[in-house]
Computed example of a mutant assay.
Amino acid sequence: MQFIDINGHIIHYQWQNTGKEHTFVFINSLGTDYRIWTAVAEALQEYGNILLFDKRGHGLSDVVPDTNGLADFANDVQTLIEELKIKKCIIVGLSVGGMIAQVLASRIPEKIEKLVLCDTRHKIGNAPIWNDRIKAVEKEGLSRISDGVMQRWFSESFRKENKIQVTGYKNMLERTTTLGYIKTCEAIRDADLTELASQIKIPTLCIVGSEDKSTTVNEVRNLSELIKDSRFEIIQGSGHIPCVDNPQALVKLIYSFIDRPSK
């Protein structure tokens, strides 16, 4: 296990530096840790170096009570990239991880080779939805919402055929710290990246699962339309977390994208 102190809080990460030309930086979703990327990272490590980490408030990273919006999450990633002396990277972000990736694209475009934005948007949900979720979690904990979240994360067929795996991911969600989860919800609630997304000039691939109920096909398509010359792909049968329910399809799309010459 590897840990780094970033402005007084500890971030847990895994850096696999094999001297490859390319480097992948993975940013996980709300209520998960970096283990969601295991299958994808293993498949891509033949092509590039791999940086995985737990967002603040998730996994083995510190909860940071004074977190104030997506900018703070982006600060963590930017510092990690700088400390590890990563000159160029391909950022792969899922859900809120994709929002953080968009912020980074506006801050350090010179360090980002390409963007892969999975099941994400420039604005996810609205204030009433997030406030209701925050209140439910504050009052009754993450177990109060976990069954409903599983229905969003995974398609009905995946849940029926992979009950043990779904239970494991439900455990992952429920063991996320309540405060870490809430601070991330607040960051998503308060973020509108519409203008920022429209200014991204980095080659971008937007991906969505056909069964995603959190960021729907049309919503992710809308993000792709905002980003000039971006590519849009649908993974049939996947829910909100294709890196878990169909990593092979996700890897295939990433390989196809990174092998394409940049415009």
Rank of each mutant, 00 (worst) to 15 (best):
G239D: 06
L51G: 03
L60M: 12
D76W: 07
A41P: 02
F3N: 07
N171L: 11
K160C: 13
I124M: 09
I134Q: 11
L142F: 14
D132L: 09
I81Y: 08
D245G: 07
I129F: 15
G97E: 04
E161F: 10
I254E: 06
G97L: 02
C185L: 15
S95K: 04
R35C: 08
K183F: 04
S262W: 08
N131I: 06
T204G: 02
I258H: 01
V96Y: 01
K163P: 00
Q78C: 07
H9K: 11
E233L: 01
A249F: 03
D66V: 07
I11N: 02
L142E: 07
T18Y: 05
C243G: 02
L117F: 09
H58A: 06
G141R: 07
S155V: 14
S61D: 10
I202C: 11
K114P: 08
I200F: 00
G237Y: 07
E219L: 09
V96Q: 08
E138F: 09
P65D: 13
Y255A: 05
I241W: 07
P242D: 01
N126E: 14
R159T: 05
W130I: 04
I50D: 00
M172Y: 12
T18W: 01
G97W: 03
K201C: 06
L253W: 04
L173M: 11
A249D: 10
H12G: 02
C118H: 03
I6D: 04
N7Y: 13
K163E: 15
S230E: 14
A43G: 06
N246I: 00
E186C: 13
K123C: 12
F158Y: 15
Q45T: 14
I10W: 04
E42Y: 12
E21C: 10
R107Q: 15
G125W: 08
I235S: 00
T177P: 07
I50P: 02
N68V: 05
D54M: 05
